[in-house]
Design a protein around this nucleic acid. Structure first.
Lengths: 106, 106
DNA sequence: CTGAATCCAATAGGATACTG
DNA sequence: CAGTATCCTATTGGATTCAG
């Protein structure tokens, strides 16, 4: 498949619905920009609540796009970083981000 | 901007939420594959209801991504086709579709 | 053929307060 | 610091029926 014009891929809709959830794009952006800890995401994403940030991170983790690591320090640190698939997704979103940017600049 | 890692673009979230609505990806796919009339979209998108197809087409039209044309024949024909921005969006979605495809094939 | 209208159930998201 | 719990409202989507 070299375009979305080819036969319908049901997973495509799933993907769109995943990244289309509120804040998900911002969370992925933050992850791509180097966010690691919960508080860093919160600081980088203006307006998001703890509840939804937690939920989005869990969803992305469940989808295998973000890896959650517990670092046994005192106090314990939790790190969220892009998994390889997540990195690929972030890359695949670039043209869409560019398209959005082009639209908003007119 | 050459990646989604650059400064946050609020429109990016809007774009994601637009295309993330159920069936929207399929409607865009159908449009890209040549669907023109209402019934053609319905036939190409398995499971969609008249109500939601109508709603999605309206949303895409309101966003300037699809153009609705009334052809004065008997009976009247309605044509929905990709606007230039819609075509660009469909193109921008290709990497995402490829990413979805890659995931589903493993 | 191309929708619009209505009704209903499920889900999503916001606000707030609380915890180990 | 990194979440969870609760409550409440708004939005979404599905099913069905009706209409120009």
């Amino acid at each position: 498949m070299d375009s979305i014009h080819d036969d319908t891929c049901p997973r495509f809709e799933d993907t769109l619905e995943l990244v289309g959830r509120r804040w998900t794009g911002s969370v992925l952006q933050a992850a791509g920009r180097g966010a690691r800890r919960f508080g860093e995401y919160r600081a980088m994403i203006d307006g998001i609540s703890d509840r939804l940030l937690s939920q989005r991170l869990k969803e992305l983790e469940a989808a295998g796009l973000i890896e959650r690591t517990v670092i046994p320090s005192t106090p314990v640190q939790i790190r969220y970083q892009l998994a390889p698939d997540g990195r690929a997704l972030v890359d695949a979103l670039v043209p869409l981000a560019q398209w959005s940017m082009r639209r908003s600049s007119t």
